[in-house]
Amino acid sequence: MKKNLKPLIIVAIIIFLLVIPTISAYNSLVTLEQQVSTSESNIDTQLQRRSDLIPNLVNTVKGYASQEKDIFTDIANARSRLAGATNVSDQANADSQLSGALSRLLVVVENYPELKSNQNFRDLTVELEGTENRITISRQDYNTAVTNYNTKRRRFPSNIIASLFGFEEKPLYKASEGANEVPSVDFSSQK
């Protein structure tokens, strides 16, 4: 009877040694995937915060620079694209367009010294600047979470668990093409 029990114990130990790493890898992937989701939500929250600030900023500037209708239209269109973004790539492209439009708006502001001294405008720009910093940090946190998740997903033996349970690769948050270009503003039509 003892001889029959020995192979069962060996099989039980082998199964135990296979199940524990499988459970551990699965739980690690779930945790990292949740961190990616949380980081993505944090980006959304900060982008929404910026989107909520923009109408106040635009309305303040409109009173001083009403002839800059194209910039106001670009900002409104970019905000709409950002609100309608359905994935990280679309969101990054819309975010880049909105950032470019805001940069052009702030360049226009340079031509209106009385606007720059307006307390409401100064408060809004300080809030917007703080939000831009939060967005940058949220993007960095998201990319860190995605990198950790994708790395774990590709490592052995987690790659086997990832493919068995459908853990898909997550995209990094990347700026759209042309995002590093300085926006051009032409003041020659003024005056």
Rank of each mutant, 00 (worst) to 15 (best):
V182T: 15
Q46C: 06
S37E: 15
R79W: 06
Q35I: 07
G130I: 10
L32M: 07
N118P: 02
V182Q: 14
L102I: 13
A78F: 04
D74C: 02
T45A: 04
N56A: 09
P113Q: 05
Y149C: 10
A101D: 02
I10Y: 11
S24C: 04
L47E: 08
Y112N: 10
A175N: 14
K170Y: 00
S158A: 08
L5W: 14
F121W: 01
K152Q: 15
V61T: 10
K191N: 15
A145Y: 04
I23S: 04
Q46D: 06
E169M: 06
T73S: 11
T125F: 01
A12V: 12
R79D: 13
D90T: 09
I54W: 10
R49Y: 00
P113R: 03
E168L: 08
T136W: 00
F16L: 15
R139C: 03
S89I: 13
A101V: 03
A12F: 09
F187R: 04
L105F: 03
E127K: 15
N120L: 06
I43E: 01
I9V: 15
V61W: 04
V185L: 06
A65P: 10
N42H: 05
K3P: 08
D74P: 05
R139V: 07
K191I: 01
I15N: 02
A94Q: 01
R104M: 09
Q48M: 01
I10G: 08
N93Y: 03
P7R: 05
V108D: 04
G166T: 00
Y112M: 11
L47P: 03
L164T: 14
D186N: 14
L128G: 09
A85M: 09
T45N: 11
P21Y: 07
A78H: 08
N143G: 02
P171R: 10
I137S: 14
T73L: 10
K152V: 01
E177N: 13
T73V: 11
A25K: 06
N180M: 11
N93K: 13
Q67W: 12
S66T: 15
S117Q: 12
R134T: 00
L82K: 00
D70C: 06
N56E: 13
I23Q: 10
P7H: 01
N56F: 12
V109P: 08
L57N: 09
N111S: 15
T45E: 07
S28C: 05
L102D: 04
L115Y: 01
P7F: 07
R49Q: 05
G130K: 14
A179E: 05
A92P: 06
I75F: 03
I20H: 08
F167N: 07
V58D: 12
V36F: 09
L18T: 13
I43M: 00
L47A: 03
Y142S: 07
R153A: 01
V185G: 06
L105R: 03
S80R: 08
V30F: 02
S51N: 08
V88K: 11
A179L: 02
S37A: 15
D90G: 14
V58L: 13
L82M: 10
A76F: 11
R81V: 08
L17P: 01
R134Y: 03
S138K: 01
L98Q: 11
